[in-house]
Design a protein around this nucleic acid. Sequence first.
DNA 1: AAGTTCATTTTTGTATTCAATTTTAAAAAT
DNA 2: ATTTTTAAAATTGAATACAAAAATGAACTT
Lengths: 215, 215
Amino acid sequence: MTERQPAETLYQQLKQDIRDNKLPIATPLKQEQLASDYGVSRIPIRDVLGRLKNEGWLTQSGKRGVMVHPLSATEAEDLYMMRMYLEPLILSHAMPKFNHQILGQATDILEQLDQPKLSISRHGDLNWQFHACLYQAANRPTLFNNIYHLHQLCSRYIGFHSVELHYEKTSQHEHYQLLNAIKAKQLGKAKNILKQHISEAGEILVEYLHKNMHF
Amino acid sequence: MTERQPAETLYQQLKQDIRDNKLPIATPLKQEQLASDYGVSRIPIRDVLGRLKNEGWLTQSGKRGVMVHPLSATEAEDLYMMRMYLEPLILSHAMPKFNHQILGQATDILEQLDQPKLSISRHGDLNWQFHACLYQAANRPTLFNNIYHLHQLCSRYIGFHSVELHYEKTSQHEHYQLLNAIKAKQLGKAKNILKQHISEAGEILVEYLHKNMHF
DNA sequence: AAGTTCATTTTTGTATTCAATTTTAAAAAT
DNA sequence: ATTTTTAAAATTGAATACAAAAATGAACTT
């Protein structure tokens, strides 16, 4: 971590470390501690903490200092509900703009997702790439960024419930269904599949959290 | 601006100044310039710029520096579309929790909105207070904060199209309709009114922007 | 005259320093 | 023993200082 502009790297690093539960939970983070841990001064740490707080990865803890934002079933439910409404919306806008190049790219990503033994983080990356590839076509930066942000926050929860492999299969099945509906230019059907896709994932996750969140 | 913790005040101030077009548009902001303008050092300026960038008030301009995020009809449309889907959603969650106290408070705010000669910013404040008062009841921090954020960004556009007073009337009418549907515990009707309320405002705004945004 | 090169200036990101606030924990009081 | 006071330590927000990167513009080439 001895670079010219640590901030961006630091941001990615800290976010990853929050995802992976590498940071003390329920206890305030000390800027100086982090600074020495990550080998930089407090200034870039402050910047990154501010940004992560703003994005919902960290929460203000008391008057001074921030802590890791606690996971909650309610938040997960909110995130998935929002996605459930916003993603079909951006899909509508993307629909008329799809072409062979984009659909080919989406197919490529799906095939990579078919490979067995993907790490959770790799799986998450590819999953987002698939959706992003479709959503980008809409050319709606504001809406897209909002959705991206929601996906990011969801990733903490997905890392948490270490994924029942069963679900991954049906998830892939839905991905292909979605792509087929798109190719057939069936907007309504595609939107329904997508909504269902997100809703299902959300329900499984929330149920899992209600069962396994005793902390 | 000689205070103990300038940052929060500075944040509000800069945001207001962006709303009011007090800042140079389409040209990168200089930290030192702002620092001397607002009478603080560059550090809190940097913090606030970072935050405002994160929240969509500023955009990265080139490799270094940020500029005021340009208004666009597309963004306005996105913001209103998101609100159109998310606000009825939070209303559903709020519905079972309403009580006399909350509804009384909402009524108070509506009566204040009835007073003539309100400044635009006061009108915007009260309008948000009305909606927030209802949405708070849902007890859904994640969803609520997202919606709050959308409202904030919309405020730039509302300030811009200096409001046709005609619309304010029908807007108030819809507010009362909404409140009545809530009192009558008609969730479906309430959601429809709200959706319609937002959708109308969005359409008027976007149309106005398409006409009057030659810059 | 238009385009390149390179040195100067500007501006930013980060480190260091400082002052104020918050936290803490030990002593005093009930 | 429990609560209150208060003084020391820890921690933060902000100012100042410094080094690296980017922008600027004048001299030079074609």
